[in-house]
Design a protein around this nucleic acid. Structure first.
Length: 568
DNA sequence: TCTATATCACCC
DNA sequence: AAACGGGTGATATAGA
């Protein structure tokens, strides 16, 4: 924590009731200034009477919490301004132990255990959390118990801080702390949905499933209710004299790709294949939607090893099948925009490795076609239209390299013989030599020193059984996550309502007459973020704009959306 | 009957 | 030994 002298260091914890889709209900707060020892204990009503926190939050104060987005959710619910400096010990604990086993998890108790500090037992903690979640009214005794419990977490923070502080890179930690504020902002704003349509869907869900199965399964008799029965399917296959591949375990291989391949030879399988695909996509059960029709859930920042957000895929609309996004609809007078970086990971790879050809390819606007040209596979005047097939293959190769894919898988992916896939991968190595030696060096470094980190210090430790594909991919994905965080911070600081992060994209919302400006500002923030991270190299973005009364639509999901609408 | 495991599908 | 990175979650079947 050198070079950062704070006059106040405030460790803080709230108790609150969280309901999916809704703002938190604040129950109480305890905070302590570790410099002076001053302690604040405040109950609901007292907090609501305040227009800001009782402790200092200015530039010479440091706000310390564990999972600060939760605390900031309470700040926002109370209408309080946010602190200038935030140190989130959850995030720092993740950063310090990322990739290593954490025997007791990543929670506050886990961090205390990791550093050999004692704490409240899990069961005591669970009991008290239940008392919070039960909701009010609480007796005087319960109130004082809850405040004591809340204070025990603050005590824990106070003890954890010195244990961790020597290992914390304060400058970067403060940046991550700013992102925790941004997360609270997004969790509070949420994503506007078509409430009526969602109600319709939920109401008729079971009936839609049954209708789908009834329509198709009569011919096969392999479903029991709406569940596919393996045994029945096996019997039907024998009766129909259709050979079927098995998994090593002996079980029938039920992969979509297997159905696809078999359906080519036995077209009778086509309808049941489509039924399986549809049913597998029919799950929007747990979408977390508030009474105002907005999708809000924990975004779980820094949860993934790469530092990405990892919201629950069932609660978060962008985790569902793409057709479900058609439920996204701005409210009257508003628009939303989905703005994503173009070929973000390719651009990051180019800029960080400083591979001149790769940077040229990115700058050309169509890296995939540029790669094909650089490899001499298509003429210099080739276009997306004139050489679509070649471009598709070189695109698949670029993506394959980013994931460390081997020739067999790439061959399957592009539906070509293995020798073609080998050739593509070889051309990538030969064309982007600088990138490959950079990637090799990163892997060597990771194996030798057992860690790797991003430009802003998000670190992965190399544990047992390292996966070289993960390690090679880490700089691209983890720096992509850094870029997203920085861009979101900047966008929010420009007073734009950010609804959600989507790995390489940002969803924003604005009144219709401000939407175009908001998009420009966001794109500027995203370009700036890339330049800061990539030493001046700017990545492009694309914007998908939806103006009330339009709804979001993704071409990959329109067919399923149509089917569902017809069934309603 | 409940839980664990395997497998699969979805997202970027 | 295999070789597609990072994830969450549902479902079907096997096992306690």
């Amino acid at each position: 924590m050198a070079n950062h002298e704070f006059r106040q260091i405030i460790c803080c914890d709230f108790e609150f009731v969280a309901v999916d889709g809704e703002a938190p209900i604040v129950v109480c707060l305890v905070a302590r200034d570790v410099v002076t020892g001053q302690t604040w204990r405040l109950w609901q009503e007292e907090l609501e009477a305040l227009s800001g926190p009782p402790f200092p939050i200015g530039s010479d104060a440091l706000f310390v919490a564990y999972y600060a987005s939760a605390e900031f959710g309470c700040f926002l619910a109370l209408g309080w301004p946010l602190p200038a400096n935030t140190l989130d010990l959850f995030t720092e604990f993740r950063c310090l132990t990322n990739g290593l086993p954490v025997p007791s998890g990543n929670g506050l108790l886990g961090a205390l255990a990791y550093y050999g500090l004692d704490a409240l037992s899990c069961t005591e903690k669970a009991t008290m959390r239940q008392l919070v979640l039960r909701g009010g009214p609480w007796s005087q005794q319960e109130k004082s118990d809850l405040l004591d419990y809340c204070q025990s977490d603050v005590d824990a923070l106070v003890r954890l801080l010195p244990q961790m502080s020597s290992a914390i890179d304060m400058e970067r930690a403060l940046l991550r702390g700013r992102y925790m504020q941004a997360v609270a902002g997004m969790e509070s704003v949420g994503i506007p949905l078509d409430w009526e349509m969602l109600q319709q869907l939920r109401l008729r869900w079971a009936a839609i499933k049954v209708a789908l199965v009834d329509r198709i399964d009569a011919e096969y008799g392999v479903y029991e209710g709406t569940t596919f029965k393996l045994e029945r399917f096996a019997r039907w296959l024998v009766e129909s004299d259709i050979p079927w591949p098995q998994l090593p375990s002996g079980q029938l291989d039920l992969k979509e790709s297997t159905f696809k391949e078999r359906a080519n030879t036995y077209p009778i399988l086509q309808p049941i294949r489509e039924l399986r695909v549809s049913l597998s996509q029919l799950k929007l059960n747990d979408l977390a939607v508030g009474r105002d029709g907005r999708n809000r859930c924990l975004l779980s920042p820094f949860r993934a090893r790469t530092g990405r957000n990892q919201p629950s895929t069932s609660k978060f609309i962008f985790g569902n099948a793409v057709w479900v996004r058609s439920l996204i609809k701005p409210s009257e007078g508003y628009g939303v925009a989905y703005i994503d970086w173009s070929q973000q990971e390719f651009g990051i790879a180019a800029a960080l490795s400083k591979d001149p050809l790769m940077m040229d390819a990115y700058a050309s606007g169509d890296p995939y076609l540029a790669f094909a040209k650089q490899a001499g596979a298509v003429p210099q005047d080739a276009t997306k239209q004139s050489h679509k097939a070649e471009r598709d293959q070189y695109k698949a190769c670029v993506l394959a390299v980013q994931y460390g894919m081997g020739p067999e898988s790439l061959a399957t992916r592009i539906d070509q013989p293995e020798i073609s896939a080998r050739k593509l991968l070889r051309l990538h190595r030969e064309t982007y030599r600088v990138f490959w030696s950079w990637s090799d060096a990163a892997l060597d470094y990771a194996m030798l020193h057992s860690k790797l980190w991003t430009v802003f210090g998000w670190t992965i430790r190399v544990g047992e059984d390292p996966n070289d594909r993960s390690l090679r991919n880490f700089p691209m994905q983890a720096n992509g996550a850094e870029m997203l965080r920085l861009a979101i911070i900047k966008t929010q600081e420009a007073e734009i309502r950010v609804c959600a992060p989507v790995h390489d994209a940002i969803l924003i919302e604005a009144p219709l007459d401000e939407l175009d400006d908001a998009i420009v500002t966001t794109q500027q923030a995203m370009a700036d973020a890339s330049a800061i991270l990539l030493d001046g190299f700017r990545l492009r973005t694309d914007a998908d704009v939806i103006r009330y009364p339009e709804r979001y639509s993704d071409p990959r999901g329109t067919k399923m959306w149509q089917t569902v609408k017809e069934l309603i």
